[in-house]
Design a protein around this nucleic acid. Structure first.
Lengths: 212, 212
DNA sequence: TTAAAAATCAGGGAATACCCTTAGATATTC
DNA sequence: GAATATCTAAGGGTATTCCCTGATTTTTAA
């Protein structure tokens, strides 16, 4: 195995140094770049291209999706492993769709880091096990359902939006020109689809999954 | 200067290792504990008390305020430096009020880490410069604050949290060992403080303003 | 050590949300 | 054209939230 050049981008120095310390004593690995924002990363990769880039997707200057898209355009051979605190399946999907090769949560240990490295270098996609499982559960269940995000109908979405505006059932019915009873039916269906216990849960999940 | 014993608590291994790597080559510093959650920390400190604890305040099991309060109760000599991603001034205030000795964002570099260490060891409070500045601006203006983010009381925050867990008034009252009527009062006060029309609004605003 | 803020509780009532079931009318898709 | 999904709506409840008022105790800050 030849030496693998890696670079890391994270605006949190501690995380950055954490990855460095987890990897620096591995003989086949050489860290050739440490960046703290998107701009630095773009410039850095132009000068010195790594094999794999660990990329925090919550950077201050550029959002992770756009940055990875841009980097992969100019460096098609580059492998990118996304780093994040949040395990938002829909986000994972979008990243993967944009050609990212791996997705790690920041609680990853050294073993998993190296495992991820090997996987993406061999051309495969690496996902942490629980993410993988969740992704699989979703896609295998139904082809129509694109992701973990529950599919609301047009009208349900209208009602959801109105609920989020703090309107009452009656107000919603007047806004949408339907009976209050219909609104209730929609609300019930939304609750059931999202697995919420009440409207509070609806809103919480809707915000989480960016349904609004 | 004698050797300083430090411990670190962070559920993100990378951050944990990052701090370790930033500090481990400093001769006067000895790392005697690395913990990944609140429980481990409590147990660890009972066995081996450090001079300074770097404490992530977003742990999975216990919230940072409660944990630091508890730790300081059992170990009054301990110095705690809080770590966080978010620069929420009201939160900083609460932490300081609870006896925490320092407050660092996770984008801290080695110099600042050591600086913070020295400061808290000398008995002073260390705040990152921008936090310091903002804190000053706030307190000098008016103690009541209320610039933008609404100030909830401890109990209101408890209720807010319970509401966000989709609990009913009765369930909340059982959880907090108070009367349902008290819960309602708190909910009303929260609504009024946040300017929400109902519980949905409470949650929406709470998420927006990162009150959870 | 006062004054103020916060936490506690309650009565009582109106408004609203929640729940289950059923079902016709309209689209949509295979 | 037939199966499926969606939108609509209602009956008939029960549970919960929302709102106002007023009050005592406890905690915190000046």
């Amino acid at each position: 195995m030849t030496t693998t050049k890696i670079a890391i981008t994270d605006d949190h120095v501690m995380v950055l140094k954490g990855i460095v310390s987890l990897l620096e004593n591995t003989p086949e690995i050489k860290i050739i770049g440490e960046y703290e924002n998107g701009e630095e990363t773009i410039k850095g990769l132009d000068l010195n291209l790594p094999d794999v880039l660990f990329l925090d997707i919550n950077l201050p200057d550029i959002n992770g999706i756009d940055l990875s898209k841009q980097l992969l355009k100019t460096h098609p051979e580059l492998k990118i492993i996304a780093l994040t605190n949040y395990e938002d399946i829909t986000f994972v999907k979008r990243m993967l769709k944009n050609g990212v090769h791996g997705y790690l949560l920041k609680n990853t240990d050294k073993l998993e880091l190296v495992e991820a490295l090997k996987t993406v270098l061999s051309g495969d996609v690496y996902l942490q096990k629980d993410i993988q499982k969740r992704l699989y559960n979703q896609t295998s269940k139904k082809a129509t359902n694109n992701g973990l995000l529950p599919k609301l109908t047009r009208r349900e979405h209208d009602v959801l939006l109105a609920i989020s505006e703090e309107l009452t059932t009656l107000e919603i019915s007047e806004k949408l020109f339907i009976s209050p009873k219909t609104v209730e039916t929609h609300r019930m269906n939304i609750m059931s689809k999202l697995g919420a216990k009440n409207s509070v849960g609806i809103i919480k999940i809707a915000i989480e999954k960016q349904l609004l």
